[in-house]
Amino acid sequence: MQRRALLAGLLAAPAVARAEGPFPDRPIRLVIPWPPGGTNDIVGRLVSEGMAARLGQPVVIENRGGAGGMLGAEVVAKATPDGYTLVLGGSGSLTITSLVQARVPYDVATAFAPIGLMGVGPNVITVHPSVAARNLRELQAVARAAPVPLSYASPGVGSTGHAAGAMIAQALDVPMEHIPYRGTGPALNDLIAGRVQVFTNALAPLQPHIRSGAARALAIAGRQRSSAMPELPTTGEQGFPQIEAATWFGLLATGGTAPERIARLHAALNAALEDAEIRRRLLEGGLEVEPSASPEEFTRFFAEDRARWAPVVQRAGMRVD
């Protein structure tokens, strides 16, 4: 009996060793909960390349857009908590969507294990060149004189762009019509085509079109000017300090993932963000690189961001049943 027990233990030992072997030992999947072409996609692909080099395993991108980022987030929320399925989260896809949607298929407070913050980018308020406004006061005048409400695009219901547009309408005291899209790319295409008049989003995908004249930037929706576009005044400088909308980008795993795996991923993420070339490209795209010192610090940031946006969403009546 004892010999059989000893034999069983010896046979089981290799399996335990394999289970507790080096992490990662196979490719990691990074779900970006938006279609290709937007800021999330740009940031995710850039950082994933840096992480892959440091983890010794490929980081495979999977774009899964829809429902303001909720569809992609759900994939990760319900994945095996082994650290091999990650999500590029943000203020829109995780924070605001969870406040706007009446039925969220996961508990945002427990379904994810925060790994680390990548950076924060204040949104830039832009208009189609046909709109006769070069600052927020002029936009207010144009909106008040328009026979029908101006329309503003967003990457989807519950996105940061949705909340920011509602915030702008409230601050300017003008009616505006929300037009949601399935991601930044389609929304940007319709702004450039003139099908919508206003679009507020992170700077990275908008910057080339601002430079070309296809879109006109009115203000940075933050407390400080952007280092990527220092000539553009902030909303506060134009007399509307209540308009403040920043988009943050962070990495999260499935809730319940082992702390040591979270720590390994956090170290790889921060190492990638310290790479001079990656930092340069992120800064050029309008993202202020702000890595978190620890997963715990990012966890606190995540909770505080949700508490900050909750009253904004409530005042705007941004509820989807």
Score class of each variant (00 low, 15 high):
Ile42Pro: 02
Pro27Ala: 03
Gly44Ser: 11
Pro33His: 06
Val16Leu: 15
Val16Pro: 02
Leu46Lys: 03
Val43Gly: 07
Ala15Tyr: 02
Leu30Arg: 09
Pro22Gln: 13
Pro36Asn: 01
Val43Lys: 12
Ile32Pro: 00
Pro35Thr: 03
Ala13Gln: 06
Gly21Val: 07
Pro27Thr: 03
Ala19Asp: 02
Gly21Arg: 14
Ala17Val: 05
Asn40Thr: 13
Gly38Arg: 12
Phe23Gly: 13
Pro14Leu: 10
Pro24Val: 04
Pro35Asp: 09
Ala13Glu: 00
Arg26Ile: 04
Pro36Asp: 00
Asp25Asn: 15
Ala8Tyr: 00
Gly9Tyr: 02
Val16Glu: 05
Pro14Ser: 09
Val31Ile: 15
Val16Arg: 04
Pro36Lys: 00
Val16Asn: 00
Trp34Asp: 09
Asp25Pro: 04
Ile28Leu: 15
Asn40His: 15
Ala15Thr: 07
Pro33Val: 08
Trp34Lys: 12
Leu11Asp: 02
Gly21Thr: 12
Phe23Leu: 11
Gly37Trp: 07
Arg26Cys: 00
Leu11Ser: 06
Pro35Ala: 08
Leu7Val: 03
Gly21Ile: 04
Ala12Glu: 13
Ala12Cys: 05
Val31Leu: 09
Ala19Val: 05
Leu7Cys: 00
Ala15Asn: 03
Val16Gly: 00
Val16Gln: 06
Ile42Glu: 14
Asp25Ile: 00
Gly37Pro: 07
Ala19Cys: 10
Phe23His: 11
Leu46Trp: 02
Gly44Ala: 13
Val47Asp: 03
Pro22Asp: 13
Val43Asp: 09
Asn40Ser: 15
Val43Ala: 04
Asp41Ser: 13
Leu7Phe: 02
Ala8Ser: 12
Val31Glu: 12
Ala13Phe: 04
Pro14Ile: 04
Pro35Glu: 14
Val47Gly: 08
Arg45Asn: 15
Asp41Phe: 04
Ala8Asp: 05
Ala19His: 01
Arg29Leu: 14
Val16Lys: 04
Gly21Asn: 13
Leu30Glu: 09
Leu30Pro: 08
Gly37Gln: 06
Leu11Gly: 01
Leu46Tyr: 01
Gly44Lys: 07
Ile32Met: 06
Asp41Pro: 14
Glu20Gly: 09
Thr39His: 11
Asn40Val: 07
Leu7His: 02
Arg26Trp: 11
Glu20Tyr: 00
Ala12Asp: 11
Thr39Ala: 14
Arg45Met: 11
Asp41Val: 09
Ala8Phe: 01
Arg18Pro: 01
Arg18Ile: 05
Gly38Ala: 09
Arg29Ser: 12
Pro14Asp: 06
Gly37Met: 03
Pro27Tyr: 07
Pro14Gly: 11
Pro24Phe: 07
Val47His: 02
Leu46Pro: 08
Val31Cys: 14
Ala12Leu: 15
Pro14Tyr: 07
Leu46Arg: 13
Leu11Ala: 15
Arg26Met: 00
Ala12Gln: 09
Ile32Phe: 01
Asp25His: 15
Thr39Pro: 06
Arg18Ser: 10
Pro14Arg: 08
Ile28Gln: 09
Pro22Asn: 07
Leu46Gly: 07
Val47Arg: 04
Ala17Trp: 02
Glu20Arg: 08
Ile28Tyr: 10
Ala19Gly: 06
Thr39Asp: 13
Ala19Asn: 10
